[in-house]
Simulated scan of single mutants.
Amino acid sequence: MTTIALITGANKGIGLETARQLAAKGIHVIIGARDAAKGEAAAQTLQAEGYKADFIPLEVSNEASVKQAAQTVTDRYGKLDILVNNAGIHPEFAQGVFSFEQMSLELLMQVYQTNFFGPFLVTREFLPLLGKSEAGRIVNTSSSAGSLTDQSNPESPYYGVNTAGYNSSKTSLNALTVQLAKQLTGTNIKVNSACPGWVQTDMGSAAAPRTVQQGAGIIIKLATLPNDGPNGGFFNEAGAIGW
């Protein structure tokens, strides 16, 4: 039976590379994106490379859009094996917002709408489909910028990344991972958080030291865990990350 994977925010960057690497394993990938033209183009790119891929409209911060996407996957496939909550934004970095005084409530809510409420909505609506998989896997694309351990350690390379909205939204996403993992104990579904590192994307900029191919590695690993793999953890390619 074909393995089906949905990746949110998959029209570019780490999301598209995650879709490509999963597809290379023979998995049918669904490109979830809010921009229909870009999402269709991404799916067509993978198809041209010989992979099984299609596109569904998915605006993670819009509940109606998420519900419609879940219904579409239900109608087309009847199940979901892998969910990668990849869609995320970091507008503070681009806008130079590095202090509480600069942060507007509107901007903070915008960050949380995509980075926290989005993964919650998508996961909630797709859990029934993941429950129909023999080995459901959920990967929340997080960041060590959301690690309270790293953020509290002046010697951590992430200590200087002081963007309150992005960092705390990823901390909150990690909390969702922990809470959901407890609910999923004893089921056929596993959920984990992944840190791809500082990657060369529109968000990460060309200054980043890591390629999208490298960044996607830990996501692929967690998306294809064996049955004895971890549940409720936070990992990068080197291993577990302190919460």
Results as ranks from 00 to 15, higher is better:
Glu92Ile: 07
Ala69Val: 08
Arg76Lys: 15
Phe98Arg: 13
Lys79Arg: 13
Arg76Ser: 14
Gly39Phe: 01
Ile82Arg: 01
Gln68Leu: 14
Ala10Thr: 00
Gly15Phe: 03
Gly88Val: 06
Ala87Tyr: 04
Ala41Asn: 10
Val66Ser: 09
Val66Asn: 06
Gln21Tyr: 04
Gln71Lys: 15
Ile7Cys: 04
Gly78Leu: 11
Met109Ile: 00
Ala64Leu: 13
Arg34Trp: 10
Thr72Lys: 14
Leu58Gln: 08
Asp75Ala: 15
Gly13Ser: 05
Ile56Gln: 04
Met103Ile: 06
Ala33Pro: 07
Ile82Asp: 01
Glu63Gln: 15
Leu58Arg: 08
Glu59Ser: 12
Ala37Asn: 10
Gly88Ile: 03
Ala64His: 12
Ala43Ser: 12
Glu106Ile: 08
Phe93Ser: 13
Ala19Phe: 09
Leu58Val: 12
Asp54Ala: 05
Asp75Met: 11
Lys38Ala: 13
Ala37Ser: 15
Met109Ala: 14
Gln68Ile: 02
Lys79Trp: 09
Gly13Gln: 06
Ala33Ser: 13
Arg34Val: 11
Ala24Arg: 10
Ala37Leu: 13
Val60Lys: 03
Leu105Asn: 14
Tyr77Cys: 02
Val29Arg: 02
Leu105Lys: 13
Tyr51Leu: 11
Gly32Val: 05
Val84Cys: 08
Phe55Cys: 04
Ile7Ala: 04
Ala10Ser: 12
Gly78Glu: 07
Lys12Asp: 00
Gly88Lys: 03
Gly78Tyr: 10
Ala53Val: 02
Ile27Glu: 02
Asp35Met: 10
Thr8Lys: 03
Ile27Arg: 00
Gly96Ile: 05
Gln44Cys: 05
Ile14Met: 08
Glu49Met: 05
Gln71Glu: 15
Ala33Lys: 01
Gly78Ile: 06
Glu40Cys: 11
Glu101His: 08
Val60Ile: 13
Val66Gly: 07
Thr45Glu: 12
Gly88Phe: 02
Ala64Cys: 10
Ala48Leu: 06
Ile14Glu: 07
Ala43Val: 02
Met109Cys: 13
His90Val: 15
Glu101Thr: 12
Ile82His: 04
Pro57Lys: 15
Ala42Tyr: 00
Gly32Pro: 03
Asp75Leu: 12
Gly39Glu: 01
Ala64Ser: 15
Ser65Phe: 12
His90Pro: 00
Leu108Gly: 07
Ser65His: 09
Ala94Pro: 04
Thr8Gln: 08
Ala41Ile: 04
Gly50Arg: 07
Thr18Trp: 00
Ala87Trp: 05
Phe55Trp: 04
Glu49Pro: 00
Leu46Trp: 02
Ile56Trp: 01
Thr18Leu: 07
Gly13Leu: 01
